[in-house]
Design a protein around this nucleic acid. Sequence first.
RNA 1: GGGCGAGUGGCGGAAUUGGUAGACGCGCUAGACUCAAAAUCUGGUUCUCGCAAGGGAGUGAGGGUUCGAUUCCCUCCCCGCCCACCA
Length: 811
Amino acid sequence: MDRYDPLKIEQKWQKIWAETEAFKAGPIDEKLPNGDPKPKKYLAEMFPYPSGAGLHVGHVRNFTIVDVLARFYTQQEMNVLRPFGYDTFGLPAENYAIKTGISPQSATATNIANFRKQAQKLGYAIDWSREINTSDPEYYKWTQWCFLQLYKAGLAYQKESYQWWCPVDQTVLANEQVENGHCWRCGSEVEKKKMKQWFFKITAYADELLDGIDALDWPDKIKTMQKNWIGRSEGAEVDFQIADKDENITVFTTRPDTLFGATFLVLAPEHPMVSELATPATAEKVKQYCQDALKKSEIERQENKEKTGVFTGSYAINPASGEKIPIWVADYVLIGYGTGAVMGVPFGDERDFEFAEKFDLPVIQVIEAPDNSPESSRFYHGEGTLVNSAQFNGTRTEDAREQIVAWLEERGLGRPKVTYKMRDWLISRQRYWGCPIPIAYDKDGNAHPIPEDQLPVMHPEIEDYKPDDSGRSPLAKAEDWLKVTLKDENGNDIECIRETDTLDGYACSSWYLWRYVSPHDDQAAWDPEAIKYWAPTDIYVGGDHAVAHLLYVRFWCKFFADQGYLPFREPIKKLLYNGYINAPDGKKMSKSKGNVIDPLEVIESGYGADTLRTYEMFIGPYDQDAAWNTEAIGGVYRFLNRCWTIVFNPEKNAADLSADDLAARKTLRHKTIKKVTEDIHRCSFNTAVAALMEFVNNIFAAPLDEDKIALAKLLKPFAPHLASEMLEKLGSDDVWPTWDESALAADTVEVVVQVNGKLRAKLSVSPDLLSDADQLQALALADANVQKFTAGREIRKVIIPKAAKLINIVV
RNA sequence: GGGCGAGUGGCGGAAUUGGUAGACGCGCUAGACUCAAAAUCUGGUUCUCGCAAGGGAGUGAGGGUUCGAUUCCCUCCCCGCCCACCA
């Protein structure tokens, strides 16, 4: 007798799917049989970086979620776009090249081939005709085009500033790539370095990026993280005149109501006015302090919250009180936020209070807390009424904020101001393996865009990938490639040198979801008709990049919508943020710990791809982390084996069911169809699989043909090879089954009887009785066990809720 | 320090709108098949008292609302993640 042989079945169907191009998305004008346009679903995972290690179980979870949904919607006769691609630029390939001498181009090609082969072994319903690769000139030509659009609109610009610099990878990093003062890639401590760099002006969209978050069908966790990252705060700028000088220092504050309590000013060490404010007596000390602060790593600045600072020797005038107040320099003030200068209000701000205590600066109480407030009187940052604030005394702090700003504004000393924690996106990288920036410089150093008809700026092949601390990328070594002749507006030649920095990889991934709609288009980044039909992406699945990538895609979407290239302003309708799969010991899988589970080994050990896929869906809720359980996967295999037996083992086919059994079976079948359908809709994949297991346990001894067909159809998104084999044997199509509400009602229903909320009996009654409260109550009270608890007591209340088959007797 | 999420049997987890706590799976266990084992099949499996029928306890701890709370509210404990001198 045959046995369930997953590897044989899977090979057979993978071959059929490849030969028939089974998962090619339909045309954008595809019609239903009745002539209506076919509804579409566009699903995608966050495309992988194809590492040399191949797919890991985390990829499998991520891709399988997309695959279950893609197959589910396909079986529901929708036009499904389920593409796949590779995010190939980046440091690992380059570091590998430095170590081995194998070029990133060649390593990438090898890794892609391996990833493709592995994804095919998992039976994914991918439209392979749409494969993309960000380091392919056909693709990065259009990344460069996107850059030029941003450049033309003034949203790509150069600025000299202090930047995070990773001394090991020898490149600058974006804020988002610095984690706790360490490089996100190599983990080494980062430094600040002053350099001229390219930026995208993401802050131009700060408000829209923030305001759009609430309406997104995304996990709250991600939404909160994005909000915090943008970090909008409303306040005011206030100008403090420098004493005896005709110059101002402008500060940002969210608490203008406490202005009268400002007893000093503090500037960040990097503030441009610091050296000018130092007096001959303090100059040496100030200079020393600023140099030390710059040298200090961000770690040290963060870890050591003990306030430090130095007096500049200069004074400013508090515009409200007219008092002369000292100007200090301290590293607790950050140059990148607000104006890089703050007013010190020790009474109203804990940090300013610590600073004032340490350096013996005066504290003026400016807020009186409400009587019942337990706050200490030494400082208080809550709401209250103003004191020691001249004409504003007695005003509530909430009102005073507006009034004081208005008062300042009338006198030209201040204005309302909104600031953001989010900075512009630093995009230049001094590395080889990235998309070349399509810019060249003339002999005077002026930047010129490369004309669109000369794209792509090809990535030059070089021998030596090593970066150095020159601040220039290895591209500078490609001498022939460097030189380019451009034309000025009069048609005269300009000799130029190309930009040698490359683009942050996040730029490449900021638009790939749109490339998928027309991946081989050589006329445009994306086809306007195709984008109108397919985009925005309906469901996007990933477990990483909560802020960076997912914020950048939204930014580019809004930008290209403004340019008229996209007919929508949010790129992703629904986001599924899947959890990690950890090692059996609950720790993160890592090569060094030797606890990595290799999905290909799981498949080839005999379990097959269907078991692996189904197990990863069954392992727990998709959005929670889960630990791999080497034994539990056997349970899923046994389940699929039973599915196989039901269809292929004829001995189990003899059904000899009574009329009652047949009716109960019909109810069960329709219930299961409903449960699985609804569970997939709400992405509760683990309970959908559980419902199928329950169904199989119930029908196993005597399956009907209808049961087998329903089972195979419902199973197909999870275990597509086995289900296809079953459907072929059964001679059935794979159209998703529907349930009949009327078939869900069983002949008898169970009603639970509680006395004082405790379960005392279960009654089996006809469904008609559910609406007959009196008779139900009579039946319940007649039950022997119920009477044990009601005997001799007065029945005070009987509750029969509509929503539940339950009766609660209160005595 | 701030924000978010979570805490349910030996384990992973289920309970969708306040209505039978523990679905499904692992593990364990008894039986069938077998010379035997594996595989497979059929039962049992929260703890506890009881031969059983049945009783008592029970969703991190304590309190509250309710006829009824894993679910809602308050206080606290522990774990995980994210942000963190952002004025």
